[in-house]
Design a protein around this nucleic acid. Structure first.
Lengths: 244, 244
DNA sequence: GTGGTCCAATGGTCCAACCAATTCTGCACG
DNA sequence: CGTGCAGAATTGGTTGGACCATTGGACCAC
């Protein structure tokens, strides 16, 4: 007898069922990332479950980065969802010390270079225009505020990851990025962080626009190298000040 | 004015606080994975928060695979926790899809190459001997069983990640590896998987032993290229058979 | 316009009870 | 004495209802 013809019955899987229904809703309404999904109260009423159950389900999605909740405003879709998503939550024993930061940078160096190369291979004219737009915004912010364009800088990089066609780049580097920034301004208050890396953003873009994967890879490596330099200088300064 | 001198204030973060307290508890009691942690009701009472809040916090941890809840039994620790963990939730749209596997391979290509290069830079003589040992075991298994040495193959690669000095390589690639194998043998029954990649294991080792980072990187890229080839061939075969 | 006030909508928290699965307990029976 | 089973106690899962905190828009006085 085929054992697979008797799947275990699901007497309780309320929140899972809620998520499945939500996937169906998102697809039916063709919701795009950034759009708002129904109120918790409405979901609870429509699905005939308690609001608490809806909340547990949404908490799961929030933990997976699929959704973002803003009190007083609503719950917003943050990424595309599909019925057969595969979740691979990975928690690493990080550390807020210098070597841990260097480790994340080594990962980022590998991924950033590959993403830039893939991006140069696959970018459509529209993609290139979008990347240029982000680059302009970033350079503008950099000149206006004289450095500290971290937000726009990050958006530029994200655009590259997206055009690479592989969502894993963005997801993995986003985790690194968060750790990095959580640690950056607080312990090491390096004011001019990002100054050194600034010119390479444009060179990366130029290589992508020229469809030059190897060039893009090389420029990305240079960019990360400047960040590693900044980090080392910051750590040295920190060590010095702690000795006084 | 420096815009970063006014960070957003943090007024409420209940469930986050619960998790932080829980991390403290686990460390204070030196709880090991597998052990049970206090009841939701007890936690709620001790932390002076509602049981609902405790549940939301635990739901987060459950989603991250840090904890397992068994109704009627209790909540059990599933992995070590630390105050500064790095969460990296990866979600792939389209589970056993060809493109998903290709995406994991792109990540692996980037990381594998970087790890091999770092390994060649940093390996001590003892490290090199250890890698050679794994290589010999793998080659032996390959010849004896004529292919299908996936277990020993994996150990060889893990040795390289370890010698690279960056634990993130092993952890991230391990997650990919697990995903990859879960879908490999099942949908695409490619018997001779790994045959093509076999010779490159030795060439990688030789570059590492010769302290040649660029060579190691190049050989690692060749290895992944063969795996990508196998995957494409398997997918083509699958597509063909599904058309009959 | 500008700024302030109010108000409705929405996520966050709390409470108290009950349901469902599991585990423990103790008694009856062999 | 052990064995098995019924029932109690424990524990996570769900419910419904209430209130708080934040948000954002509407409205109004200046």
């Amino acid at each position: 007898m085929d054992q697979n013809s008797l799947p275990p019955i699901q007497t309780t899987a309320r929140d899972d069922a809620v998520l499945k229904a939500l996937v169906g809703f998102v697809r039916a309404e063709a919701l795009q990332p950034g759009e708002r999904l129904p109120t918790e109260r409405i979901l609870a009423e429509r699905l005939k479950v308690s609001r608490n159950t809806v909340r547990e389900a949404l908490t799961r999605w929030e933990g997976l980065g699929l959704v973002e909740r803003r009190q007083g405003s609503g719950t917003y879709l943050k990424a595309a969802v599909s019925p057969d998503m595969l979740h691979m939550p990975l928690t690493l024993a990080g550390g807020n010390d210098f070597t841990s930061l260097m480790h994340t940078l080594e990962i980022r160096r590998a991924l950033e270079a590959e993403a830039a190369a893939l991006c140069a291979e696959r970018a459509s004219p529209a993609d290139i225009a979008e990347i240029k737009r982000k680059l302009d915004i970033m350079e503008q912010a950099f000149r206006t505020r004289d450095g500290m364009s971290s937000e726009e800088d990050w958006e530029f990089h994200q655009a590259i990851y997206r055009v690479s066609g592989n969502p894993l780049f963005e997801q993995i580097i986003a985790a690194m990025h968060e750790l990095f920034h959580r640690f950056w301004e607080h312990p090491l208050g390096v004011r001019d962080f990002g100054h050194a890396s600034f010119p390479y953003h444009r060179t990366i873009y130029e290589c992508i626009a020229a469809r030059d994967p190897q060039g893009a890879r090389a420029e990305a490596l240079k960019l990360i190298a400047t960040v590693e330099d900044d980090l080392k200088r910051g750590a040295a300064k920190l060590k010095l000040s702690s000795q006084t």
